[in-house]
Design a protein around this nucleic acid. Structure first.
Lengths: 156, 156
DNA sequence: GAAGATTGACGAATCAATCTTC
DNA sequence: GAAGATTGATTCGTCAATCTTC
């Protein structure tokens, strides 16, 4: 039936809406937790993690790419706040002065170290820990498939 | 091993990050599509859908609940914009004058009718259509489990 | 002139405080 | 006084324009 169907099936619609709802609720919990226990929003934590995983520093462009969505200017302003808070400092690239690096400070590392256990426990507590064994892998696989095909579509 | 583990397993971490990335990319696509083809952001579309599904109207409180996250004040301002655009009008409840209803206008219905095919096709195109048959149901089930248990945790 | 990054101007989100009606 | 909703002040996100360096 339904040759040429363009709209989602009921299953598809449920999957879509469920994903939206899950995302909203979980992100909200994690953000609240970080703010209450460590005084930083989830955005800041993301920056600290990205810098840490890249060895402590990244250029602004790299950082903007690593942080989902975020426009270049938003990234600048976000880093401004972290600099004001003393968690990050800026450095001009020694080879190409157009390039600026965001660099973790000692304080930034300390905050990350303290906040990480809360955040990681939060991910289990509010998200993956609510699944049965093996289901996290399923979810990973589904996301991987979507992301892979999205990427192909982007480069068509 | 790892008695007392608190952090996510690699599978769990991949599931979490993948979900974040998928959400960001898909929402971004759908928003861009609606803006370009119908001149409305995804937020507006959500409001129109919520009102339509509730029979054309909802109180501000109900609407704020239905729209994920959104604080009461944000909901007020969002409806302000839709009212200014002529897609929604406000009505005071006849029983309890504290309660205000957001009501779809004819124009609002018309915009929804035109935009819906684009949006629904977009969900398939950028999200569920990228999965294999049966996988949307899997994804639904995973989300349902998480949402169900999140709910229980909220009321503990 | 183009790449990397920032700024000015404006629209949107949020908190606390407020207004109205119950 | 509490519920429903809005407003004022502030912060945050984004576009276009700008600055600097290549």
């Amino acid at each position: 039936v339904a040759i040429g169907r363009r709209g989602p099936t009921p299953d598809e619609m449920t999957a879509w809406r469920g994903s939206l709802r899950t995302h909203a609720l979980v992100v909200n919990r994690l953000d609240t937790e970080l703010r209450q226990r460590h005084g930083i929003p989830l955005d800041w934590y993301d920056v600290l993690v990205q810098l840490h995983e890249a060895g402590g520093e990244r250029t602004m462009s790299e950082l903007a790419d690593a942080l989902l969505i975020l426009s270049p200017s938003s990234c600048t302003r976000l880093v401004d706040r972290l600099v004001a808070a003393g968690l990050v400092r800026r450095e001009v690239d020694s080879d190409d002065a157009r390039v600026k690096h965001a660099v973790l400070t000692a304080e930034g590392r300390a905050v990350l170290r303290r906040a990480a256990p809360t955040h990681l426990a939060g991910i289990r507590r509010w998200f993956t820990g609510l699944l049965e064994p093996g289901e996290a892998a399923q979810l990973s696989a589904l996301n991987a498939r979507i992301l892979d095909r999205l990427d192909r579509k982007a480069n068509d």
